[in-house]
């Protein structure tokens, strides 16, 4: 018989000892975690897609909200500034009106002889 044929004949497949599949299953039950990678991966993929869509849709809304708030704050600051200026002007006008009254001259009479006596 030629060597090729001898090799083929000597290398016929052999069965594992009885109960091999049960032993693999038992070892699997002992050592391996439950198989659920596919559904988990699918769920996480959908969650990622949903998060992206949400970000795309909510982004402009959030920006508009931010812009409105910023404009409102700027307007309030302007109003406060205007009120401060108006208040300052009013105070200034008030001082101008009140001070002449405070420093006004004494009534005419005894006052004139006194002045003449000092001279």
């Amino acid at each position: 018989m030629n060597p090729d044929a001898r090799l083929r004949r000597a290398l016929v497949p052999v069965d594992p000892p009885d109960g091999f599949a049960q032993r693999v299953r038992a070892r699997l039950a002992r050592e391996a975690p439950a198989v659920s990678p596919r559904p988990a991966r699918r769920v996480s993929r959908w969650m990622a897609i949903a998060a992206t869509v949400l970000a795309v849709l909510a982004g402009p809304l959030a920006y508009r909200e931010y812009e409105t708030r910023r404009e409102a704050l700027a307007a309030r600051a302007k109003v406060v500034l205007a009120l401060q200026i108006a208040s300052r002007e009013l105070n200034s006008a008030h001082r101008k009106v009140v001070r002449p009254m405070v420093t006004a001259p004494a009534p005419v009479g005894g006052g004139a002889s006194g002045r003449d006596g000092r001279r």
């Binding site: 497949p13 052999v14 069965d15 594992p16 091999f20 599949a21 693999v24 299953r25």
Partner: peptide, 9 residues
């Protein structure tokens, strides 16, 4: 496992 054990073993 049963279907492929012979080949692997």
């Amino acid at each position: 496992v049963r279907r492929h054990q012979r080949k692997v073993y």
